[in-house]
């Protein structure tokens, strides 16, 4: 394949990104997919409880975006975040153990699917109130400026979150104060079962940035290199000039909103889901790399085998991890325990 026939962003990324990283991104997409497929199985087997939101179909967004970060950069996400956590560096075993509600989980079994945290990896949750975490990311960016540090915060949320006040309040402050934060709207078209056309007065979410005189871009969220290209520029801008950006990544979730939601239903048709699955971001990227001569099918198969093996190992780790001790119930309510939190009496 001649690079001259490729879209600009693809040519740019293939030229600028080391081959090892291009392949790592493919591996991470495969790992994210296999991890979530097995998560669905584990949920069906009732090894996992509560609300559980799968990322299948949207992998290009988290993986393209997080591929642009340094280890000391931070991410703050909503509740569809298993893959974000793993890509940010959380080990798959402790992530699965958290879904299982086990002591070895990243949040010691106290958080669950929606509240994955890993301080060492810059994974700042895992938050369950739609849009409620957007001010937190604005706050970590405020701290970067305050402390004169050059880390960048990525904040991920769905398109339904842009209608809540916290989004607007955050964008206003980030633009007003010039904070190093990149807001990434994962526009998967549906807030639960409500299509964006039925919830937002404006279709082009990125245009919301105009109200705050903020840089913005819309990107194909099914194209991992496009996401990497756009987020990379925004991260540079944030790091260099402390300026925020709003990015709308248009993607699609192939599964239901949560495990209790059918893949399609009253709000979208089977045919629509099927049509979107034809645009599978992993297959597209795989074909691109094969076409560019960077990998062959055998090597892809090996990566997939590795992803499956790592997922199997994560499940083994989760199974082997004990349930949290009843003694832990009053731990970590306060950093210095008092009263009932030292005696287990209430």
């Amino acid at each position: 394949m001649s690079t001259s026939s490729l879209p600009d962003h693809v040519a740019r990324q293939l030229a600028a990104t080391p081959k090892a990283q291009l392949l790592e991104m493919l591996y991470q997409m495969l790992l994210g997919r296999r991890f979530e497929e097995r998560t669905a199985e584990m949920y069906a087997m009732q090894k996992i409880g509560g609300f559980c939101h799968l990322y299948i179909g949207q992998e290009a967004v988290a993986i393209g975006a997080i591929s642009t970060l340094r280890p000391d950069d931070l991410i703050v996400t909503a509740y569809r975040e298993h893959v974000h956590a793993i890509v940010k560096g959380c080990e798959p075993g402790p992530v699965m153990a958290e879904l299982f509600g086990r002591e070895g989980g990243v949040s010691k079994g106290k958080g669950g699917s929606m509240h994955l945290f890993d301080r060492r990896r810059g994974m700042l949750g895992g938050h369950g109130i739609v849009g409620g975490h957007i001010p937190l990311a604005t706050g970590t960016a405020f701290a970067a400026k305050y402390l004169k540090r050059d880390y960048v915060t990525l904040c991920f949320f769905g398109e339904a979150a842009v209608n809540i006040g916290a989004f607007h309040e955050s964008l206003n402050m980030a633009a007003l104060w010039k904070l190093p934060v990149v807001y990434i709207v994962e526009n998967n078209r549906f807030g639960m079962g409500t299509a964006i056309e039925r919830s937002s007065a404006i279709y082009d979410v990125a245009q919301r940035a105009c109200a705050y005189d903020m840089a913005s871009e819309t990107v194909d969220g099914m194209d991992v290199l496009a996401v990497r290209d756009v987020v990379g520029r925004a991260v540079d801008l944030a790091r260099r000039e402390g300026a925020p950006t709003l990015i709308e990544a248009r993607c699609y979730r192939f599964m239901g909103h949560s495990m209790s939601d059918p893949v399609h239903g009253h709000y979208r048709t089977k045919e629509e889901v099927q049509e979107q699955k034809e645009q599978d971001p992993i297959r597209s990227y795989m074909n691109l790399l094969i076409g560019a001569g960077l990998v062959d099918r055998q090597a892809v198969e090996a990566l997939d085998q590795k992803a499956r093996a790592v997922t199997d190992e994560a499940i083994r780790f989760a199974e082997a991890s004990p349930e949290p001790s009843p003694d832990s119930i009053f731990q970590d309510v306060y950093s210095v325990p008092y009263g009932p939190y030292t005696t287990r009496e209430q």
Binding site: P135, G139, A141, A143, A144, Y146, L147, G165, A166, N172
Partner: peptide, 26 residues
């Protein structure tokens, strides 16, 4: 002004900025 920060009228926003800043060590 870096340490005595006037905000817009945006209580949810700056309450959350405070929580995020605390997560980052302030």
């Amino acid at each position: 002004p870096q340490r005595i920060v006037d905000t817009p009228i945006t209580e949810e926003g700056f309450a959350g900025v405070g929580v995020g800043a605390a997560m980052a060590g302030l």
